[in-house]
Amino acid sequence: MLYVYRFRLYPTKEQVEFLNRQIGHCRFVYNKLLEIAKENYEKEGKKWNYYEYKKLLPKLKGESPFLKEANTQSLQEAVKWLDRAFKNFFKGLAKFPKFKSKKSVNSISIPQHFRIEGNKIKIPKLKTPIKFKKHRKIEGKVRSVSITKLPSGKFYLNVLVDREIEPLSKTENVVAIDVGLTHFCTLSTGEKIENPRHLLKTEEKLQKLQRKLSRKVKGSKKYLKLQRRIAKLHEKIVNQRNDFLHKLSKKIIGDNQAVIVEDLNVKGLLKNSNFSKHIADASWRRFISYLEYKAKLYGRKLIKINLFYPSSKLYSVCGYKNENLKLSDRKWKCPKCGAEHDRDYNAPLNLLKEGLKQLKGLLTIRVVGLERPELTPVERANALVEAGNSSLK
């Protein structure tokens, strides 16, 4: 499977200037071709065609001689990025492609003619190799590399490799996960993972810096310095969030042979103005993507349950469906059997039951938590699960 290693680059002053020029050249080509594509569509109704617009590169080099300094293959990769953006737009996966800004995250792709030697990388058009922090061994066949510049001014090396699947020791455990805002997620074992709220914890400090920035003269030294501080703070929040998601997803995948999650429509949930900031901070979509690729890498199974499955409204013991359940109802009493239960804990038990139907006959598994007699709700769900999956052992 394809896997990306990421390392922090430490270029010299001259190398920083070179990388900035290379990234600028790729950004120029991307924006110029996007401008031409938009103009052709608005005037002539001409749709995007990758091979046709790729042929415009020699013409752009003639009109803009500075592009001759750039690595030709990197410019071709910029056209591929634009092609991918248009394809995602036509598939309904993204909005119409936007022009790249110098202030945002920028990258340059280098598909060939690079060389990694120890903790240094040699790239085309640059005489001296660039140092990077090699904190882990690169395993697998290297396919290509790219260099990313963040708004904070830091550079990162991304190494794409074709890596062999490394199956972990088999286990009989299976667990279901329900994500939320009160807690980051609740497992079918009864365990609740606290929501770290990285953005909300730093929000006050961030707002103070942004207010200071608004009082500075735009483009001045103090303005740029403060802008860099804000970018670094945002980067710290992203790093904290990714660290939390990586560690949690690795633990869950490592402990269970199969993991069951709900296939959420996060894009639709973000339209709720009351919870959009909290949902974005929790980063559920990224968490599920981490579970997905780690499951593939370590030989585990990830089961996604249809987003229309009423996991919160169904009572996991008797099957009663509460049509009047509100988001504010964290606990509710079943009118059918009279039992009262926790909404957050009930949902993963229902996901577990539904996921076991898909796993039936594929794996020899046991539901994590059923061996714990102190968890009364799990004991109640035990009979339900066993009835739905007679292959459990």
Rank of each mutant, 00 (worst) to 15 (best):
M1V: 13
R6T: 07
F7D: 06
P11W: 04
E17P: 00
F18V: 09
N20E: 15
R21E: 09
H25F: 15
R27E: 07
E35N: 04
K46I: 15
N49M: 12
Y51M: 07
K55V: 08
K61R: 15
K61S: 13
G62H: 14
E63H: 12
L67N: 11
S74P: 14
L82N: 01
A85E: 04
F86W: 07
K87N: 06
K91A: 07
K95T: 13
F99I: 00
K100E: 02
F114S: 10
F114I: 13
F114D: 07
R115E: 13
G118C: 08
K120M: 06
K127C: 01
R136M: 13
E139C: 03
G140K: 07
T148L: 07
L150H: 09
Y156R: 05
L157F: 12
P167G: 01
S169F: 12
K170N: 07
V175Y: 01
I177S: 00
D178T: 08
D178F: 05
V179Q: 00
L181T: 08
C185Q: 01
I193S: 01
R197G: 05
E204Q: 11
K212Q: 10
Y223P: 08
N239R: 14
R241T: 08
H246Y: 01
I252T: 04
G254V: 02
N256M: 02
V261Q: 01
D263A: 00
N265E: 05
L269W: 15
K271M: 07
H278F: 11
D281W: 13
R285Y: 03
K296E: 00
Y298L: 03
E323I: 14
L325Q: 13
R330T: 10
K331T: 14
K331R: 15
W332R: 00
K333R: 14
P335T: 11
A339Q: 14
E340S: 15
R343A: 09
L349Y: 08
L352F: 05
K357L: 08
G361H: 09
R366Y: 05
E371H: 09
L375H: 13
E379V: 13
L392D: 03
L392K: 06
L392T: 01
